[in-house]
């Protein structure tokens, strides 16, 4: 019997990688943090995973992954046949199943051609279970290239008006300008990942709740990542936050990975911790 490497690819009857785009439209909501955490989580659960930085000119994934000093060749070099994939891929030192393909810092974003990106993804598809595409912000070339070939989309959203609106806009683009849309294939599976969530502010009515955001976007909820000091601490030292198992954000990302792989887990970190009687009485 052929070993089951990946459930989703088995379902489609072909043994190719599943391509996941991490997108949002709005900048600064946590796409790169999520790309790093999700790809590390998938790799730790035994899936061969490669994470690609599509933010040409403003590369940061290598920093968040802690491999910035090992970058020799990049995604654009591979597209332009200046290096092969094996030369450009950086193997993660913490997890053997994880590889990083960094973006170019010097080139123009137009360097990502549809043919070139398609060829690289095709080549990677043969040897990996998951290809995670870290999209740049905005709806321009880099972002459309990151989403074009996707099978799944994780829409990273903050509980804040402009982020929710931009996410809805991205959903429209996913539904009309992706390869799956253009070839009338089965639509991209879309997931919502709500980040920087502050349950306390939600309870006082200062912040949109999970339900509020879901009422508007109505997506499959992959996870809720609480606002957490651990995220900055992790990026300071180049360690994907999912490796900080003690932290709330790390645990929330680990749950999200399990859900992505089909487990049914209850959502955590969405309710504020109950204050004691004395705290309520005297303020705190």
């Amino acid at each position: 019997m052929v070993p089951r490497r990946c459930r989703h690819t088995q379902e489609e009857g072909r043994n190719l990688a599943r391509i996941i785009v991490i997108t949002s439209g709005k900048g600064g909501v946590g796409k790169t943090t999520t790309s790093a955490a999700l790809s590390m989580g998938l790799a730790q659960r035994g899936r061969r995973t490669v994470v690609i930085d599509f933010d040409v000119g403003l590369r940061n994934l290598d920093l968040i992954m802690g491999c910035e000093r090992r970058v020799v060749y990049d995604f654009v070099n591979v597209i332009n046949h200046e290096a092969n994939l094996n030369q450009a891929l950086i193997r993660d030192k913490r997890c053997d199943n994880l590889y990083v393909l960094p973006a170019s810092q010097t080139r123009d974003k137009e360097a990502l051609t549809k043919e070139g990106v398609g060829r690289v993804l095709e080549e990677l598809s043969q040897g990996y279970d998951f290809i995670v595409c870290d999209s740049p912000a905005g709806i321009e070339h880099g972002a459309t290239m990151a989403m074009y070939f996707a099978d799944d989309a994780v829409v990273v959203t903050n509980p804040e008006v402009s982020s929710v609106r931009d996410s809805d806009r991205m959903l429209g683009i996913l539904a009309s300008k992706s390869r799956r849309a253009e070839t009338n294939a089965e639509p991209i599976r879309e997931f919502l990942l709500l980040t920087r969530y502050d349950p306390q502010r939600v309870e006082t009515g200062e912040m949109l709740s999970v339900k509020d955001v879901q009422d508007i976007l109505s997506l499959n909820l992959l996870g809720v990542i609480p606002e957490s000091k651990a995220v900055l601490t992790a990026s300071n030292s180049g360690v994907p936050v999912i490796l900080d198992r003690e932290s709330d954000a790390g645990q929330a990302y680990a749950d999200a990975v399990c859900r992505f792989l089909g487990e049914d887990l209850p959502h955590r970190f969405i309710h504020a911790e109950k204050k004691g009687f004395f705290n309520r009485l005297f303020g705190g």
Binding site: E160, V161, G205, E206, M207, L208, I216
Partner: peptide, 16 residues
């Protein structure tokens, strides 16, 4: 609750 989240939600629903 006197928060502004409900205002945010109403505005978003119309806009979206």
């Amino acid at each position: 609750p006197k928060g502004t989240a409900n205002v945010a939600k109403e505005r978003l629903q119309i806009l979206v």
